[in-house]
Design a protein around this nucleic acid. Structure first.
Lengths: 346, 346
DNA sequence: TTAATGATGGGTATCGTTACCCATCGCGGT
DNA sequence: ACCGCGATGGGTAACGATACCCATCATTAA
């Protein structure tokens, strides 16, 4: 291969001739394959270092592994995804794998499908897909050809692994907290469905249903108020404006995600109301920014780093150890109370 | 190629035999190459659609283009990068290109180098690298073999293109604004150097130097106070704590990035001080969250979407049109004043 | 009429690496 | 002395697509 500047890239043959061995031997050393003596390994490694050789991932993809994990994120704006990614990288870097990220375009199945195809076409060894909205059949089709972990989706599959937090416990914690503070008119901000309505495969549906269940269990069924927009700042803002216009207005808002909670805070502030004096707000994800003193948002913590690490481990198990049985891993969330929630006034 | 489930992937030969033409013809259609009749194009396209064929990017990489743009981000936590990415995607999607993102590990040249290598090994057609800390010689080495655009770095190169905002203008706007409000003790939060100290290739250095220059021009040289940590929430928090401990404490803080400004807001709030009553705060980037009512941060706006679009256009020019001369594109920032800045008390 | 030209389609070597298979060697057991 | 076996190293045909070159044919110019 000749690069634009006319210099040839160092290939496995260059290493082989420099070390005076066969390309096969070099390949075996590279892959830690069976049948290589210690002397051979040292000799080849020396040649590799001397020439600054790096395996050509694209060429590898033609026959073997690419040592690449593909990650599909709905969008990179959500800070919680950064935690997941850090956990994933930590886990796979040691095994010599590299993560590449593509944006899936949140809530749009077509765009998500294109993103997945892009990874499959690039022959990644494994795929982590976060909160997909694609039909399960399409996910399974992909999972049959490439090891796959799905994060944040409540369905069971025999072909891909699942990593999720227990959204029922998380939502319960948040709603119970608000109720125990004395709130009765508690509203919920959810996300619009982008597939079969109210299906429990989606985490936002679980959070919303749990909210309704807990409200009902405490005799607050008449106060149930859900506005479904999206788990974004804009979505939270719109939903909160709608809720604040109601009469009587809610004294507390449980937002399905921290981003939505930020938008809600903005709307509340804009309406001239105080948090938590007039309205308490709780979020979900415990993104790092929620801890900052001027925001100080009560939020449900799901450990993104552990979820990312686990996803990485599950993928490596499938890739290297050939596991084919499906696994489901669930973390239990906890509530972090901060200054955005307090007993209602009067 | 046989996938795990035993099904063969559809290849160009399958398409060729199905359409009863040569693989060469199919390849030409795929690449929009010269020498294809309209009838041929239609026939081949029909076969492609019928079989659901998708080109194998890894195989393409062996001889031709991968139709992939690699993006190196210091980390995905910074919301400003999301704007850049949206602009880039918008520009390259039409040309059939796909962006893949790798994390470079901010402020760590080694980790950044590994990220770049990962992209080069995967044979991407072009690379966009955001705010790199790597030595210029390494960047140029890479740029000689792969079309490269560097975003947010103030050096001139003959081999790669540069996209940046005019940080001198931006910093001037922010500092002049604070001075015109009547502030004199204005502090600045900057970023530690991760290479040659105080070199003007780094945008944080330009912002810091401009701050010093403008202060001096207004006879405020004695009030110059710079704390260099990092453009992150943690960095802004630490720096602000240090600044608030000084006697007398500053009445205004110009943070070099919005993220640092958020950290500063947290520290100020934690110290029991009010914004803008006790301390005014201005940031840089005008990330979307700064506009939210409960934050309402005065910030310097650089249009990330335009920068991303331009970077995409410049890369496509190099890839498709073979441009080799280096280009430099600079956007002029504007100031967006919000409620975090006001005249000093008393 | 012939030669030159342009448009179109196809044959084939090749990119860098690995999977598969085979050759060789040394050693222990019969 | 011979056989069998495990350990080691190498030869070679793929993987899927494209670049390069050539063959063919219709059209136009001389």
């Amino acid at each position: 291969m000749v690069t634009r500047d006319g210099r040839r890239r160092v290939t496995i043959s260059d290493v082989a001739s420099h070390a005076q061995v066969s390309t096969t031997a070099v390949s075996k050393v590279l892959r830690n394959a069976y049948g290589v003596s210690e002397a051979m390994r040292a000799k080849v490694q020396a040649a590799i270092d001397e020439l600054g050789y790096r395996p050509h991932a694209a060429a590898r993809a033609m026959r073997g592994r690419t040592f690449t994990i593909g990650v599909v994120l709905p969008h990179i704006r959500n800070p919680f995804f950064a935690d997941i990614l850090d956990g994933l990288n930590e886990q796979i870097a040691g095994a010599g794998y590299q993560a590449i990220i593509v944006q899936g375009g949140s809530m749009d199945p077509d765009s998500e499908g294109r993103a997945i195809n892009a990874l499959v076409d690039r022959q990644v060894d494994g795929i982590l897909i976060v909160a997909p909205v694609l039909a399960r059949s399409r996910l399974e089709e992909m999972a049959r050809s490439t090891p796959t972990v799905v994060l944040g989706r409540h369905d069971r599959s025999a072909v891909y692994d699942s990593v999720l937090d227990d959204d029922e416990v998380g939502a319960e914690l948040a709603v119970e907290h608000l109720i125990s503070l004395g709130h009765r008119r508690i509203a919920h901000i959810s996300q619009k469905d982008s597939g079969p309505a109210r299906s429990v495969v989606w985490l936002h549906t679980i959070r919303a249903r749990t909210y309704e269940r807990v409200m009902a269990e405490h005799g607050l069924a008449e106060h149930i108020a859900v506005v479904a927009t999206s788990y974004t700042e804009e979505g939270g803002y719109q939903a909160a404006r709608e809720l604040l216009a109601r009469e009587p207005r809610p004294t507390a808002v449980f937002a399905g995600s921290d981003q939505a909670a930020f938008g809600a805070l903005a709307a509340i502030h804009e309406a001239g109301l105080a948090v938590p004096g007039d309205v308490s707000v709780a979020g979900y994800d415990n993104a790092r920014v929620t801890a900052l003193a001027h925001i100080s948002l009560t939020s449900v913590d799901q450990d993104g780093a552990i979820m990312g690490r686990t996803a990485g481990r599950l993928l490596l198990e499938r890739i290297s150890e050939g596991r084919t049985s499906a696994v489901r891993f669930s973390v239990t969330p906890t509530l972090v109370t901060r200054r955005s929630t307090a007993p209602p006034r009067g």
